[in-house]
């Protein structure tokens, strides 16, 4: 009995240290592993589709925009071309290098203008999405430190993102609640100067070509009391684009 007790007293702390150490280590691993799984789940290599964007103002006035959406390299390059309303028909944006370079095309003048990055945090077509929000998932890895928090929910992980020093992004923090089963995000909290300014919710998640896809994404702007809902009208993944598709030439088509 004494011998057994002695063994337990010797081995238990070692075992606990090993278990806790492994757990702590795996928790750090998990944050980046979860992020990898999440970006793989939510951003197929390439995509092509048609989406609808409904902006609801703080005074409940609704406006609907329809646009074509093309992306490649996990969202590194994105092309958006507006179809409706008539006012912005054929206006187009080319966003490259994860939002580092943005060009906008105005069809009435057939003019292409490069937007400086200080415009990245401005509203895209008056919506609650900024140009930066369309940037690819690489920004999470490049511009933020990530750690795992307690979501307080059984079905989600909580990823906390803290902006790296010198990172050129407007949100200083982001919290992402990730589904434990599919690794698809449920919602994202955006913080500016530690103030929770926007929430993006992913709704009606269905599978398209084995990728979980939110048919509706709702961005709520807490500062202005407005919200913008993106709805997928059709979407196709792993599309092979012709060479130089994401170029000024295609922007003007």
């Amino acid at each position: 009995m004494d011998e057994h007790y002695q063994k337990v007293t010797i081995y238990l702390p070692v075992l606990l240290t090993l278990i806790l150490g492994t757990a702590l280590y795996s928790q750090n691993m998990s944050a980046s592993a979860i992020l990898d799984s999440m970006t793989a789940a939510m951003q197929p290599v390439s995509a092509k589709g048609k989406m609808e964007q409904e902006i609801i103002s703080s005074k409940n006035v609704k406006r609907v925009f329809t646009f074509e959406y093309f992306s490649e390299n996990n969202g590194e390059n994105v092309l958006i071309r507006y179809l409706e309303p008539r006012k912005v028909k054929n206006n187009a944006f080319l966003i490259k290098n994860n939002g580092e370079d943005i060009w906008v095309y105005f069809p009435r003048t057939r003019r292409v203008r490069k937007l400086a990055s200080h415009a990245k945090n401005q509203k895209a077509q008056g919506s609650d999405f900024s140009y930066e929000d369309f940037s690819g998932s690489e920004n999470w890895k490049n511009d933020y430190k990530v750690n795992l928090g307690d979501s307080g929910e059984r079905e989600t992980y909580l990823l906390n993102f803290i902006r790296k020093e010198k990172a050129d992004v407007s949100y200083n923090k982001q919290n992402i609640f990730v589904d434990k089963r599919t690794y698809y995000p449920h919602r994202i909290f955006y913080f500016e100067d530690d103030e929770h300014v926007k929430t993006l919710e992913f709704k009606e998640i269905t599978e398209i070509q084995h990728y979980p896809t939110a048919q509706r994404m709702v961005m709520k702007n807490h500062a202005e009391g407005s919200q913008t809902e993106m709805r997928i009208l059709n979407m196709e993944y792993n599309v092979e684009f012709e060479e130089n598709f994401f170029s000024e030439r295609n922007l003007k088509k």
Binding site: L115, A116, H118, A119, D168
Partner: peptide, 9 residues
């Protein structure tokens, strides 16, 4: 030319 330096276009 068009571009930016330190967030100034």
């Amino acid at each position: 030319f068009t571009g930016e330096i330190s967030e100034y276009g």
